[in-house]
Write a protein that binds this DNA or RNA. Structure first.
Lengths: 144, 144
DNA sequence: TTTTAATCAGATAAAAATATCTGATTTAAC
DNA sequence: GTTAAATCAGATATTTTTATCTGATTAAAA
């Protein structure tokens, strides 16, 4: 089964978008995020920990603690989350799984695939969390 | 870790390209494919079985048996192999993992992502094995 | 100061994907 | 016919990913 982003990465993006949509509030607990996004609390907690240690979000410990964006949502790009959780493999590894695929020793699909991957990287690098924060609330509504 | 195609699919495409590059010869054994592509014989055998049962390649059993393309390489498209091994999930499932993502209840990335996925689907549907069969031999040289 | 509610860190469990093994079947050559 | 070399089918093993659990730490509120 092929996938694009790992489950962790999918949920990481969901969670960051939810935090962005809650602007004005100081922090949001992992429990609220889990309930709103209908995903297991334990799993999203681990993901929030990763996002915290990579500096995309920040956490407040103790009672009344929770998570918030580490910077302005127009400074957080989708690519930041993808690279933090899944790394750069999707953009750098050979699409056919050949070793050392490059313009010197290209695989058969190298040229055509590079073009698509570059476009994808560009989109993820340009789009900010800010551009999407309102859309996530509408999607969450549809989950209820 | 994110991936595009499963390992099975990557190797399936590699193997079909190798068969295409060997035009003129009646059949190619799984052992030869494994040796040339530097991958385990047992694993590629299983993949060749799948490709046979989905009608992309055909097999000849018994001594001197092996595999060959089931049709003209200009009639086999990359998408055929991808769909046969990985299915259509990559093209139909929500990129953020939300349920029921569609233009009615879109996820935040739905519109931007659909565009990239449609382009990818189009490329894989247009490109034939025939377009790539020579390139694979050059790549195999670099493995030696 | 104690209790409560939150994150944090590391271990463990479960599920899925990847890879391997074993034996049966098929077919060409001797 | 017998043997050898190939695919086929299903079971098994290994690895990775996904998910959960447990206990420690932190900090607000009673």
């Amino acid at each position: 089964m092929a996938i694009i982003f790992s489950r962790k990465c999918e949920l990481g993006i969901q969670a960051v978008l939810y935090l962005a949509s809650a602007e004005g509030r100081e922090v949001i607990s992992s429990e609220e995020i889990a309930n709103e996004l209908k995903i297991p609390k334990e799993f999203i907690s681990k993901i929030l920990q990763e996002l915290t240690s990579s500096g995309i979000i920040s956490s407040k410990k103790g009672k009344m603690g929770g998570f918030s964006l580490a910077k302005n949502p127009n400074k957080i790009h989708l690519i930041d989350i993808v690279l933090a959780i899944d790394g750069a493999d999707i953009f750098s590894k050979c699409v056919l799984g050949f070793p050392n695929c490059s313009s010197e020793t290209p695989c058969p699909m190298h040229a055509t695939w590079s073009q698509l991957i570059d476009e994808t990287f560009k989109m993820l690098s340009e789009e900010t969390i800010d551009n999407y924060k309102n859309k996530v609330l509408r999607k969450i509504e549809s989950l209820k």
